[in-house]
Simulated scan of single mutants.
Amino acid sequence: MQEDGTAARQGSMALPAIGLTILSGLLYVLGYAASKSLVTDHGLSPLQVTFLRCGVILLAGLVAASWPGSRMSWHRLLRPQRAWEQRTAAAALVASNALAVLAYTLLSVTAASALGFTAPLLLALLGGLFLRERVSLGRWLGTSVGFAGMLLIVKPGGEASLPGIAAAFAGALTYAVYQILIRRLRDVATTRDTVMQVALVGVVLLAVPVAADWRPVSLLAAGLVVVVTLVQTAALASIAAALHRGEASRLAPWQFSGLLWAMALDALVLHVIPGAGSLIGALLVIGGGALAQTLKAPERRRV
């Protein structure tokens, strides 16, 4: 009976978790596209973009913490539960963000997205290894099918920038590590805690290197930084909330949906109509996510 109740609770949380994962994919695509503009059009460095985002979030959080009746707390910010784990997760995301901005700068948006979406495969693997989630055959097949669909959509093999490729893969790995740690911390850290720890750790880690290579920030660039911060903070909150509701390995295939948003953005902004291969890839992405939900791991026998 207890197992039935647990299964029912997991089922009731599955759809919201999937929806939040898909939303985070849309927001991340929009945020990183705007971040690329800050580097290529406004002359900022990838580290500076990440530092400014963290600074805006931290400033807003500190103001909120000082407001009477606010749910923000200085104590939770400065002395969080399992502080080392929370701050290690935050450092992983800060590194992932900086690497992703660098990758988007060195590669085309579609190629950077393609390489960055190796994170779901890494997440499925790490979820089984470190969270002891039972990664069923369906989840492996779903993730693999989604990955194959991603390759059909973006065809990344023609990219020649090895530093860009390395940055994209490293960003994917650190993002997968972040999600694993957040899943482990789901009982002690809220989404708000996660956002604020990332902001605090980002400011502390990046202050010195950014100050050493500070580049002027125009009024237009400052406004775009605020927009990027709002969009990517919403993406971060969405994926953190999803991981509070669902297993990391089960949600992994749905993260490929970000490529569908990238295709739609290309069609709307650049008027690039996807070909047959891309459309087949889109179907594989959707099918992979569905497959991961339908084929479950076999029940373990009781001894």
Score class of each variant (00 low, 15 high):
Leu162His: 04
Leu162Tyr: 11
Pro163Leu: 03
Gly164Ser: 02
Gly164Pro: 02
Ile165His: 05
Ala166Val: 14
Ala166Gln: 05
Ala167Trp: 09
Phe169Arg: 07
Ala170Gln: 08
Gly171Arg: 08
Ala172Arg: 00
Thr174Tyr: 02
Tyr175Glu: 12
Val177Phe: 05
Tyr178Ala: 12
Gln179Pro: 07
Gln179His: 11
Gln179Lys: 05
Ile180Phe: 06
Ile180Asn: 04
Leu181Arg: 02
Leu181Lys: 01
Ile182Gly: 10
Ile182Glu: 07
Arg183Ala: 01
Arg183Ile: 01
Arg183Lys: 02
Arg184Gln: 07
Leu185Thr: 01
Arg186Ala: 10
Arg186Leu: 05
Ala189Gly: 00
Thr191Gly: 08
Arg192Leu: 14
Asp193Ala: 08
Asp193Ser: 11
Gln197Ala: 15
Ala199Met: 11
Leu200Phe: 02
Val201Leu: 09
Gly202Asp: 05
Val203Ala: 02
Val203Cys: 08
Leu205Glu: 00
Leu205Ala: 08
Leu206Thr: 01
Val208Phe: 09
Pro209Thr: 10
Val210Leu: 03
Ala211Arg: 10
Ala212Cys: 04
Ala212Pro: 00
Asp213Ala: 13
Asp213Met: 13
Asp213Glu: 11
Trp214His: 07
Arg215Ser: 04
Arg215Glu: 04
Val217Tyr: 05
Leu220Ile: 10
Ala221Arg: 01
Ala222Ile: 05
Gly223Met: 05
Gly223His: 04
Gly223Tyr: 02
Gly223Cys: 06
Leu224Pro: 03
Leu224Met: 06
Leu224Ile: 04
Val228Leu: 04
Val228Tyr: 03
Val228Gly: 03
Thr229Ile: 01
Leu230Phe: 15
Gln232Tyr: 07
Gln232Ala: 14
Ala234Asn: 10
Ala235Lys: 12
Ala237Val: 03
Ala237Glu: 04
Ser238Val: 14
Ser238Cys: 15
Ser238Leu: 11
Ile239Leu: 10
Ile239Met: 14
Ile239Tyr: 09
Ile239Ala: 13
Ala240Ser: 13
Ala241Glu: 12
Ala241Phe: 09
Leu243Tyr: 13
Leu243Ile: 03
Gly246Ile: 02
Gly246Phe: 01
Ala248Tyr: 00
Ala248Pro: 00
Ser249Glu: 03
Arg250Phe: 13
Arg250Pro: 07
Leu251Ile: 06
Ala252Asn: 03
Ala252Ser: 07
Ala252Glu: 01
Ala252Val: 01
Pro253Cys: 05
Pro253Phe: 06
Trp254Lys: 04
Trp254His: 13
Gln255Glu: 15
Ser257Met: 07
Ser257Asn: 06
Leu259Pro: 06
Leu259Ala: 11
Leu259Asn: 12
Leu260Tyr: 05
Leu260Ile: 02
Trp261Val: 09
Trp261Gly: 10
Ala262Glu: 13
Ala262Gln: 11
Met263Gln: 13
Met263Thr: 14
Leu265Asp: 09
Ala267Ser: 12
Ala267Lys: 06
Leu268Ala: 13
Leu268Phe: 15
Val269Pro: 14
Val269Met: 14
Leu270Lys: 12
His271Met: 13
Ile273Cys: 10
Pro274Phe: 07
Gly275Pro: 00
Gly275Gln: 02
Ser278Ala: 15
Ser278His: 09
Leu279Ile: 15
Leu279Phe: 13
Ile280His: 14
